[in-house]
Amino acid sequence: NIFRVLGDFSHLASIFILLHKIQQLKSCSGISFKSQVLYMLVYITRYLDLPWTSSPYNFIFKVLFISSELYIIYLMARAYKPTNDPNLDTFHVEFLLGFAGLLALLFPYKYTILEVFWAFSIWLESVAILPQLFMLQRTGEAEAMTAHYIAALGMYRALYIPNWIYRYFSEPTHKVDTIAVTAGILQTILYSDFFWIYYTKVMRGEKFKLP
């Protein structure tokens, strides 16, 4: 459906915006390396089923997400390392890993390796933006491209919410993926404050600056 496709393309667009920002400005300043590593972990643990992916659409996106994230991490850790300031990237990710690990072990759909890792990846993704938002809060402002990146990334999961509602009514099984929906709503709520400033500042041509 349209929400799902717009969501996935918003996700893909966010990655292109980030790569464009790093290469155009020859800098990864303002980007949290910790959040990027968490996303890598999200993709690896979620796409363990990559070889068995039957849909070409999903297969292509999975390959794109894994490979582009690897490239982003390479750019941040090697090519543009001097522009990456670890002193600003101080969020304690062990809390996020603990949170996702605990929920994945307590409430997976099934106790299989694939299902536990899948649930872990869903919960981890819901909070993986926190080091990035924390860094933004410390610097108090962001380059326009960094703000566009975060907005596109946040829009992706927000668009999955109408997708789930649409699917609930349009598919005969009326299934609700409780883990994905709960985590997806949490993820979108974490962005809400950012979305508000993005809407009131960046979309009106102003700089992204915290009040």
Binding site: D49, N58, K62, F65, L114, E115, Y160
Partner: peptide, 10 residues
């Protein structure tokens, strides 16, 4: 995918 839930989303 070996999962009866069938994770058909990304």
């Amino acid at each position: 995918t070996g999962s009866e839930h069938g994770h058909d989303e990304l």
